[in-house]
Each structure stands twice: as C-alpha cells, then as structure tokens.
Amino acid sequence: MLNMGGPSTVPETYDFLRNLFMDGDLIPLPFQRVLAPLIAKRRTPQIEKQYVDIGGGSPILRYTDYQGAAMCALLDELHPETAPHKHYVAFRYANPLTQETARRMREDGIKRAIAFTQYPQYSCSTTGSSLNELFRRGRAGEMGEVEWSVIDRWGTHPGFIKAVTQNVEAALSKFEPSSRSDVVLLFSAHSLPMSVVNRGDPYVLEVAASVNAVMDQLGHSNPYRLVWQSQVGPSAWLGMQTGEAIKGLARLGKKQVILVPIAFTSDHIETLYELDMEYIKEGKELGMEIRRSESLNESPVFIRALADIVSQHLSDFSSGKIDPTSVQMGLRCPGCKSATCGQQKHWFARGGR
C-alpha cells in the first residue's frame, strides 16, 4: 500500500520534510541535495506546531494499517485461491519507508506482491515516485525474488465514488433544507508544480474525472468547483488555491460551502490542519457557514472498494486478461526526461524482472 505518509510523532517531522524535499519527482529543485535539508530545517518548527495542533502526529499510518487489515480479511473471502493475504505499508517520506518494508518482505519470504497505490488518481510525482522507489529497491535485490503487478489508479471506481458521495451527502444534511441546494461544493486536491503539469502529467484529468463521477452520483444537485491546496515554495503551482477560492466565494456572496477532500483517502495534516483549522476558520471570519466532508478513514464502503479492486485485479491477472501493468501506466508523460521513470515502467511491465 503505497502513499506519501506522514510523521506519526512530532519529533519525526524534520526527517519527513527532508525526505519530501529531497524527492525531485514531487518537488523539482536546483541543487536538491543542498537545498532540501535547509528548506526542511527552516520549515520544521512551523510544521511541528501544526502536528501538535492536530494531536501530536499524523494518523495516516494508523488508518492505512486499519484499511489494509480489513481489506485483507475481505480478500480472504472474495479470493480464497490466493489467501491468506497480507498487507504492507510503504511510505515515501515517513516510517515505514519503502526500504524498511522491502526488508520485512524479504524476511517474510514474499514471492507474489501487488504494488497498490493509495493515491486514487495517478501522478508521476506521487504514485510514480513511490513506484520509482520500489523499483530501486527491487532492482537492488532488497526484497528477494518477487513477482509484481501494479494497481496504479482507481479514481472512478464505483465503490470509491460511492464512499465519497455518502460523506458529501452527510455533510449536506447538516445545512437547512431550504438552502441546501445552494451550498457550493469545493473539491480540494493536493496541488502540483506547474512544471509537472506542463510535462503532461495525467493527475489533473484524473482528479476531474473523480469529481465528475461524484457529481453524477449526486445528480448534479449543487454548484461545485475543483480547487487545489498545499502549495509549497515560490515556484508556480496549479491553481486556484483552496483558500483563495473561499475568499472569492465570500466576495461573490456565496456563504455556504462544503470542502471535499477528493484525492486524500485518510485524514492527515492537509485535512486536519489545512482544511479544518485554516480554511474553515478563514471562512467563518468571512461570515461563511463552511463544513468539511469526512475523509474515508474507516468507511466500510471504502474498505470494500479496496478489496473489490484487488480481487478483480487478481482474477484478471491470473486469467491473463491483464498484464502486470495497465496500458495507461505504460505511457510516459510526453515531456518526461527521467531515465528512472522509463526503467521503472519496463521493470514492472515484466513483473519485476
């Protein structure tokens, strides 16, 4: 189960930030090895305070472990021919890091594995970065001999869309019926540097497809927009930013808003601090009634969706209907210049050989 991760305790914050800023797939920087530790050190006190404010660390590992264990229990029923199933968490920037997970897999003697991204929508800077790191560990033999296949995107899977839609409907129910149809839905996803977008990354298209699928389920009952959050650094990032959208809606007289985290499946700092403590507070100061749709966390509908995705993948792969990687994953961004990306895609397409 591949994801960005987050520091489970406040003292882990610097290491998390250093690892994040060292990743050129996510945040391309000149002189990365020199600048990344400096930027991380400068930002650590501020981010540590935010983690203290949300309870002393990120809950993303706890939720991912819960989701993984519940998913595997369902998989044992849905696909008994490959049981027992076991989940591993491989975070990109926080413990358990991919290298630690690779060591555990080798010790456990794993021979067949699925690289299952926990980012519903694909981006080279998120799923691609995690797969690059998994490839580096696999090529170095750190996991032993493992046959791999990949679930690289699932942003329009009916179970995922149903789980998100249910949470939006629950948030809408908290508004007065007379004004409920006027509530603006702001679907908020993590932004990307424009340098990533402009090389042909599919993330924007795939997030928009998720939003459209949710709105179809809602019967297009409300006005909505897709906005972007969590910009880091001075370079140009994809907009409009969520905070600016809230200010703009207030100026236009739209006083009721629901924030919908569409690219995050578990609560972490972007939802618990940025959305809940920054943006909702700003909205209230502008006289707005602003709420957030819950993250998927322990949603049984979502966990069933994860199990269904893997079960279908196992069935299709074992019957020869699909290759180790999807057709879409095999296409590099037209502007891609990363040698690692090309090597990674070729390696996974051959089942990790």
Rank of each mutant, 00 (worst) to 15 (best):
R304E: 15
D15N: 07
T271L: 11
A36P: 02
L314D: 05
I161M: 07
Q67D: 08
E274W: 07
G351A: 00
V232G: 13
V150C: 01
A102V: 11
M71P: 04
V146A: 07
F16I: 03
G248C: 13
G287T: 06
C341T: 00
Q256V: 10
R153L: 08
M71S: 05
V34Q: 10
G352V: 01
G352E: 00
G243M: 13
K321E: 15
S235L: 15
P177K: 09
E107A: 13
M71H: 05
D76A: 07
P324L: 04
D23V: 03
P11L: 02
L35Q: 10
V164F: 10
V168Y: 04
Y224E: 15
E142W: 08
P261A: 04
T325R: 03
E294W: 12
A170K: 13
K284F: 14
T44D: 02
I280Y: 08
F175A: 09
K345Q: 00
L26T: 12
S318Q: 12
G243R: 10
V197A: 03
I27D: 00
G219D: 13
K321P: 10
Q118D: 06
H85W: 08
L17H: 01
V184Q: 14
N3I: 11
D53P: 05
E81S: 13
R350F: 06
V227H: 09
R33A: 14
F317Y: 14
I258V: 12
D25T: 04
P30I: 07
G330F: 04
S338Q: 01
E77G: 09
A305V: 08
T98F: 12
E147S: 09
T127K: 01
R106T: 12
N297C: 12
F302N: 03
